[in-house]
Amino acid sequence: MLNQKKYTLAIILLFLAVIITALFNISLGSVNIPIQEVTASLLGLQVEKDTWRYIILNYRLPKAITAIITGSGLAVSGLLMQTLFRNPLAGPYVLGLSSGASLGVALVFMGASVFGASFAAILLSEWSLVIASSLGSLIVLFAVILASIRLRDTMAILIIGLMFASLTAAIVSVLAYFSPASQLQQFVFWSYGSLGDLSWDEVLILGLFWLVGILIAIGSIKNLNSLLLGEQYARSLGTNIKRNRFMIIIATSLLAGSITAFAGPIAFVGLAVPHLIRQIIPSSNHITLVPAVIFGGAILMLICDIIAQLPGSEYSLPINAITSLIGAPVVIWLLVRKRKFNF
């Protein structure tokens, strides 16, 4: 649409910020590697120490890429949900995806004590976490999609998603109640979220899901703009409401489901980044918002990961806590400073 050229510069700056924060993200950690060495290593040039190269290629780079994928993927699905449900409080998890994933993981960790040891032996393999959380998300997703085919009202889907979230959360707490402390602890650690545990194979699989989800989101930009007017207007502009809704739910599920499976239930980013971006770029036009939110989500996640690593120390903090610790004050500050809520 019109007047979007003035935002092109903002988007280019956001993109550059992604690259710069990514370099810092790779450079900082328990061992700090100079930025020049990071760039040299990434460009395939000679690096001063071989250990640095090893750390970068096997630990820091996959972690940085995971941060970019999770941040941007969750942020885009948050934006999609907020527009689809016409609700500024919507996020990628309103469809109950993360609760479904939690249920799957809870069954793996804590099912043993409830259903017996043989059950756990089947489940506890290398990929069991990913498979369990994917299956959990998928089951909830299918329920939501079935509902979305039957229902005409978009708001009803939102409520059904929330009901599924409560339902699965209840089952998880029943499981937790009967589980021994050690297994409960494993589950709690999963729920903190983690970016650093992924192998290159896993990053590749996650990246494929991310790509499909992002491509569907980009393909939906025009229909998302029609939806800004409301569903009846959108229909009168030739938008196929049901198909469009279906595609948006698929994109969100692919993004949020796969990210939760690989990196845990990372809260807040999906809800907060679209609002952060709307405060910086005062436009509702998705042709601007979608790329800005992709880059914004990546930046927020990279920064949060740098802080979670506590550079120079041996310790690291749970990423799930850091995203909220950093993100919430920023959103509050932006809203208070502008005294006006752009949506």
Partner: peptide, 28 residues
């Protein structure tokens, strides 16, 4: 229509431009 709009955070010209949606390409 009298339907409430999702977002009034559009400029006038952007809102009028949405009227061209049936004629624009895949990305609008």
């Amino acid at each position: 229509l009298t339907e409430q709009m999702l977002s009034k955070n559009l400029s006038v010209i952007e809102l009028v431009a949405l009227g061209r949606q049936p004629y624009t390409n895949w990305i609008g």
